[in-house]
Amino acid sequence: MDILLTNIWRFFDPVLFGVVLGCVLIMAWIQNGRHSIIRGFAALGNSSGNPFEASGENATYMCRRIDFILREQGLSGLETLHSEDAFVTRILHHLVDAKDSKSFEEWVHLEEHVAETKQNMAASYWLSAAEIAPAIGLIGTITGLIQLFATGIDPLKMGPAMSFTLLTSLYGLFISHIIAFPIYVRLHARAEVLHAYRSKVVQHTVNIAIRELDAVSPVHFVPANPIKNNV
């Protein structure tokens, strides 16, 4: 332990660490698409806890609020109802302006899919980074070893040179298991909470649309063909 603490400065090369980290982030960005790196870093600000931990909001609570407003104020009253999740607020406002249950159901399921894809993109970015980082580190190590032996370096100087080369593998493992994968686990857990919450609220609003919108929709009757009496 004393040896590690005394020589800890040997384990950190900011330039080499920056090169490995940059390669990992770029490769994960290429793998997941142009918006993934933005979503991946933007999600870090909201990844510290449960999205509804402070407000105590959950699907059952929101569905009961929707039913209460619907009973007291009618369908138009849902415009005044707001959620901690902007997605839920948006679908409630759209429900008020919906023309029929079929079009609303198609729209809300499409919006749910888009929101889920965006939510998962951030977690997928960091999962890709966790998977890529060891490979980037190993590539750096192998490249360094090839260059090391190709130059015919003095055996007395080979130790420090190999130490520098092996740092790329160390940094790859560090980025993967200490940085990227824990972030992925946190973002994935948050995405599951949001998806479960949204799915229940979406199904509840679809049921309301079927009950409320179809009940007030005009019924179109097709007149029967007149019966001709044969004389």
Results as ranks from 00 to 15, higher is better:
Pro51Gly: 12
Met162Ser: 09
Ala135Val: 14
Ser217Lys: 14
Asn230Ala: 13
Lys200Met: 09
Phe221Leu: 15
Ala224Ile: 13
Tyr125Ser: 05
Arg71Gln: 10
Thr60Asp: 13
Met1Leu: 11
Glu111Lys: 12
Pro218Gly: 00
Ile132Gln: 04
Pro226Thr: 14
His35Pro: 02
Gln119Arg: 11
Lys102Thr: 08
Gln119Tyr: 03
Ile38Thr: 12
Ser48Arg: 08
Ser47Glu: 03
Gly144Cys: 02
His35Val: 10
His188Ile: 06
Ile146Asn: 01
Val114Phe: 09
Leu25Tyr: 02
Gly56Glu: 08
Arg90Met: 11
Trp9Leu: 12
His188Pro: 02
Ile66Gln: 01
Pro155Gly: 11
Val185Ile: 13
Val185Tyr: 08
Glu212Tyr: 03
His220Trp: 05
Ala191Asp: 06
Glu57Ser: 02
Ile37Arg: 03
Gly159Gln: 02
Ile132Val: 15
His113Gln: 13
Ala135Tyr: 03
Ala130Asn: 03
Cys23Leu: 15
Met27Val: 13
Ser169Asn: 10
Ile26His: 08
Lys200Tyr: 01
Glu111Phe: 00
Ala59Met: 07
Thr141Asn: 06
Phe149Glu: 01
Ala42Ile: 05
Ser163Leu: 12
Ile208Arg: 02
Ala59Pro: 01
Leu166Tyr: 00
Gly74Tyr: 07
Ala135Gly: 13
Met27Lys: 07
Ala86Asp: 14
Phe11Thr: 05
Gly77Asn: 10
Gly74Cys: 07
Arg190His: 09
Phe41Trp: 06
